[in-house]
Design a protein around this nucleic acid. Structure first.
Lengths: 195, 195
DNA sequence: TTGATTTGTTAATCTAGTTTATTTTTTAAA
DNA sequence: TTTAAAAAATAAACTAGATTAACAAATCAA
């Protein structure tokens, strides 16, 4: 059980005293998943918010036509859950699946409320995290409007330099909302033109 | 000056006592803009979060090619600002422009923090609003992945039945990320096929 | 070390949505 | 009430990206 990375992460935002840390520890739990396991499954209620200690997850859904779409990746020091299902406690539209062995710290809905009640600083932290998440979600919409598939791929590589090496290319294509064939074409083109 | 709609809105989420309401009032301000006025301008820092009492705004940006893209509309009982600029206090990438005469309640950055410090319930409210905003932003990304332009238009009409009558069609097209010509084609097609 | 499965490439054909240009309709100002 | 400007419709030519299909590498299990 490896809790330190989470406390280090939190330290970037708020200072907690010993008592608060003890409380936080007792209201969260550590869990290890293996590669291929599902943390959340489409159709089930998402019971946890997960902070990733190590590993890598994909958040994807399967649409009416049976096509898979990756909505987000998450790696160390990121959060991973289906927030919609978590806050409404209704069945999830998404799957969260481990692409590597993955260790997480989990917050349940009830415990999260307890934590916020007892350590208001934690609610401030979550509010700020949500603000940042919203900004980057909006940024993605904006990129979708204004950038060609090629430029979106370049943006993705710059923004998430660590992810491309860890996941297969067809998943990057899925994240970008293009076919794997087209991404292959884009990469061939980039190599040929050296940028 | 018309503060009641804002208090009614808040009442849906949290209960405030007289003292808290007085505090809230003194730390927010009312402002009226006329049709065509900018609440935020691309390049300037967004100093306020705005709750709309009456009217309608568009949040848009102009990309490198000089093209305008509408990111969101907002009407009565919605919020309107550039959250990225607001939280970082850096120049905004967006414009917020009034499409009608618009009355708003404004929170400045400093006052918002004061409000959260003095009325923690308000921070909880904002956290929950951010959660909902993030969910709907993600929903938009998902629709972009899975729906044709026609189905996105139908979704838009269902989700925002009040907006289409209030804004010109080319703005709806811009919001959907398609050209006005193509939206016109879609509408003609929908009329012809009665769905 | 081999066969099977997963991942990636290439190329031809196809289509949803864009671009450009012209015409018609609606809105609003004088 | 007229007129100019803004908004919407129509249509032809065009393009970014999808689809299909065949094949080539890489990975993995036994």
């Amino acid at each position: 059980m490896n809790y330190a990375p989470f406390l280090n992460y939190i330290k970037n935002f708020v200072d907690l005293n010993e008592k608060e840390i003890t409380f936080l520890r007792s209201y969260t739990n550590y869990k290890k998943y293996f590669k291929g396991q599902y943390i959340v499954q489409q159709g089930e209620v998402c019971n946890h918010t997960n902070f990733i200690i190590s590993g890598c997850t994909e958040n994807f859904y399967i649409d009416q036509k049976g096509q898979e779409h990756i909505v987000t990746f998450a790696i160390e020091n990121w959060w991973s859950s289906d927030i919609s299902s978590f806050i409404t406690q209704k069945p999830s539209d998404f799957n969260v699946k481990c692409l590597e062995d993955t260790e997480v710290i989990q917050f349940t809905c009830q415990n999260q409320d307890e934590i916020f009640k007892n350590i208001p600083k934690m609610e401030t932290l979550f509010r700020k995290l949500l603000e940042k998440a919203l900004v980057s979600s909006q940024k993605r919409i904006v990129n979708n409007f204004s950038l060609s598939a090629k430029d979106q791929y370049i943006y993705f590589k710059n923004q998430y330099p660590n992810i491309e090496q860890r996941v297969p290319q067809y998943m990057v294509a899925s994240y970008l909302g293009i076919t794997k064939e087209f991404l292959s074409k884009i990469k061939a083109h980039l190599v040929k033109n050296k940028s």
